[in-house]
Nucleic acid binder design. Sequence first.
DNA 1: AAGATTAACTAAAACGATTTAGCTCCTAAA
DNA 2: TTTAGGAGCTAAATCGTTTTAGTTAATCTT
Lengths: 341, 341
Amino acid sequence: MKSSLKQIAKALNLSTAGVSKALNDYPDISLATKKIVKSYVKKVGYKANNQAAYLRTRKTRTIGVIFPEVTNHFFSEILEGIMDQAQKNNYTLIIGHSKESMDEEKRLVNQFLQQKVDGILMSLAQNTSEFSHLEDVVSNETILVLFDKIARTVNCSKVSIDDKKAGFNATEHLIKKGCSKIAHFRGDLNPQNSIDRYLGYREALSLHNINYDANKVLISRKGSVKEGYLLAKKLYESGIKIDGLFCVTDMVALGAIRFFKEQKIDIPNEICIIGFSKTMVGSFVNPSLTSIDQKAIKMGKMAMKLFISEEKMLRTENRLENQYLELKTKLIKRESTDKIL
Amino acid sequence: MKSSLKQIAKALNLSTAGVSKALNDYPDISLATKKIVKSYVKKVGYKANNQAAYLRTRKTRTIGVIFPEVTNHFFSEILEGIMDQAQKNNYTLIIGHSKESMDEEKRLVNQFLQQKVDGILMSLAQNTSEFSHLEDVVSNETILVLFDKIARTVNCSKVSIDDKKAGFNATEHLIKKGCSKIAHFRGDLNPQNSIDRYLGYREALSLHNINYDANKVLISRKGSVKEGYLLAKKLYESGIKIDGLFCVTDMVALGAIRFFKEQKIDIPNEICIIGFSKTMVGSFVNPSLTSIDQKAIKMGKMAMKLFISEEKMLRTENRLENQYLELKTKLIKRESTDKIL
DNA sequence: AAGATTAACTAAAACGATTTAGCTCCTAAA
DNA sequence: TTTAGGAGCTAAATCGTTTTAGTTAATCTT
């Protein structure tokens, strides 16, 4: 039933070495023998034992992927990008979600290192504030690629979007639509994305000579629809008047839209709203939601490509490049900012 | 830099066996020794080598998961359910997507078997019409659990919803809303879900003495928004009048809604529409979409639980149970069927 | 005090592949 | 007829664990 090279070798009157070489197309095995071995192997349904092979090759052709969460269209698309590339390049993907917890993230990293993955691709949890586990990856000679939620200070490859620029563009779009009292529902304080989008927001205001008002900046910790709703409510009830709103995620924007619609506030004519991520639901909501396309599939693809290029670099030149890729974003204009000027 | 039991043993003046036993809490190692070993191991940052361990234990504590696609909220939620249970039970997940191709599905199964996963959890591709690769899993002594898109004839554990009942309930809901000319945009001909939902549709019609009209049943192969739009258009242009529509997925329903809205047809008052899956976008679209909640997270959780129970059964009694779980669905009433009676 | 028991270890084989070094033939050149 | 060279294999070590079957020394029993 279970088959090994040894058994195949015995059946074919060969050595295990011969069988192994035949299957791996070594040049010192005759074509005739290779054919015999391969057809026999197919016939008996032999399945190679990757675990055993690893012991000598030191390669699992396995990559660990860690997401903060997985029921999120943005991360699903990144996963699709990664998976496509992985399957094309004959890599196996191991996956886990940190549920936005640094401890779980650390546990996963450790687990993956014990699985002897060739590399780890990850997006950091919100509250990841300490990076010893990332250093651990590198010091275990495992290639590390951070995507989306990255840590600038860690020495590894990274892919992200230019969040500051994107935040700038989003805000500037509102300004060009004539908004001057622009609120920002930003993300949590730690994550780099959240910081950068906020900085982009401030930069746009500053460039267009609009005074920054800290009261117009509220923090959404989880980036959920519910939070968006509650923040909108809080802002509204505080009496602060706005005519534009830039939200850190589409979900937050959807929550805000829901609240403003309940209050019979006209979007976009009274308040223009822009989200972030270009989720599918944004195109179906009424009014449809202007957003920033983060090119999620491409980000996944690029993360995997970075890994592959680093792996090659390590194999051929025994060094890493630690590249940092910044992907361009795109403003997707829809009804929620389509104000009549 | 890289550490093994052997090196640790040498450093601590123990045998590798002793170190291994200490780490695995064997009773024949003193508490004092265990403490020394564990603290040393932590100090030098030793990472166990799961691959090597497998060679003796024959357990990878790794499970392969195969989805038809992954950028789909339904599957993301199943994944979340699976992942949660996996992480809680200290299993590692390997993941792949078949992209609705049987060949890719077969390739993945084979790859996972070579990785020596303890089990495979999978949802079949649309065009999977032949199951030799599934038999292969079983004959390699690997536990197989099918979820969502299952094959009735394969001898393994399964979780799905009762699609026929769900299709029945969806259709009956329309009937109770006064609809009598009910169309059905069904899924492709092969998948069991698609067949069962269709059968449920017919059963509801029959029970309520409504004549079945084959012209009102159109096939959506991919279940996409675009297809929904085109099918609605086709039906509309064919001149067939309807007052109710049951769609195989929310996406198809969204496409249909989009078309009917363009035609200024009042939903729900002229046509009631019901989808399937309770995707998030359904709650944001206007009118919000009545749907069937498939309990995706629970399905994932149950798939993993089935695996765990089968694994235990195999370990303790050396046999499998091959259970078949059918989860209850729930009708989520929203605006698209909220007709004034 | 001698034998039995127990606590706490170790030795060594085994898992299934890969790979280096070496061994046979056989052929062709000298 | 040697012999050098190459083609096509094999032997055996090795990777890092686990686990069975001891082994040793200390303790207990009578």
